[in-house]
């Protein structure tokens, strides 16, 4: 076991970027995607002859901003799910020969997992702020952002479990489906509950808090046995 390589260093070894650097870059990217989509629809509204006040109130009345937020949060999360460093991928063999071996791989993977949660949290906070400040109003506001955040974590858990049995290519395919289904689920939950927070958010929140670390560790164990060497 090598204890000198920290999570952040392990990530730099695997990724060329340290953990803070990756979180910052991916968060900016995530926020950028959200901002771009908003700007695009805002401009279309303006081009249609409406003034900015009308466009904004239309947004507040529809799930427009809510779903844009969902897409940008989910997109970055699923992209980062691809950082699996399989042996046949570029760098795969190099990573298998460095100090710490699998231990370092596990650290890098854990660092990525933590980063994904952190990035989801940052974009959630960003969208919440935009909503609270009234710059970009959402239909269900904070309930949307929190629901999506929790559901992204649920998707991560499900994908962890799936990856234990499937190859990286197949699990990517399934991940696309899962994130899509989760997205639909988010919309249904919000519309059915009418944006009132309750047990639908609380239960998955508590469950993932436990299941995400558990599933990650299980996945690492399976990976070491089946795919590392």
């Amino acid at each position: 076991m090598n204890n000198r390589i920290t999570l952040s260093k392990a990530m730099k070894l695997y990724n060329g970027r340290s953990m803070p650097e990756l979180i910052l870059k991916m968060s900016l990217l995530s926020m950028g995607v959200y901002a771009l989509m908003l700007a695009f629809i805002f401009l279309i509204g303006l081009a249609g002859g409406d003034d900015s006040v009308t466009v904004r109130s239309e947004m507040a009345g529809s799930l427009m901003a809510d779903s844009f937020f969902m897409i940008s949060a989910g997109l970055i999360n699923i992209i980062m799910a691809q950082m699996t460093y399989e042996k046949h991928m570029p760098g795969g063999k190099f990573f298998r020969t460095v100090k710490g071996g699998f231990d370092t791989y596990k650290k890098a993977s854990t660092a990525i997992c933590i980063s994904r949660v952190a990035i989801a949290a940052i974009i959630t906070a960003f969208a919440s702020l935009l909503h609270i400040s009234g710059i970009v109003p959402m239909k269900y506001g904070i309930v949307t952002t929190v629901t999506v955040f929790v559901l992204v974590l649920v998707a991560m858990c499900i994908c962890n479990f799936l990856s234990m049995r499937l190859s990286s290519t197949v699990s990517f395919f399934f991940a696309l489906i899962i994130y899509f289904v989760i997205g639909i689920a988010a919309v249904i939950i919000l519309e059915v509950t009418g944006g009132t927070p309750g047990i639908v958010q609380l239960v998955p929140a508590v469950t993932t808090a436990v299941l995400l670390p558990v599933s990650h560790n299980m996945l690492m164990k399976v990976y070491k046995e089946k795919r590392w060497n």
Partner: peptide, 18 residues
């Protein structure tokens, strides 16, 4: 494919150092 293809010389050095 010894290293990830988006790496530059500095990235390689950073990674090898760790």
């Amino acid at each position: 494919n010894y290293f990830p293809l988006d790496w530059k010389l500095t990235t390689i050095a950073d990674s090898m150092e760790i």
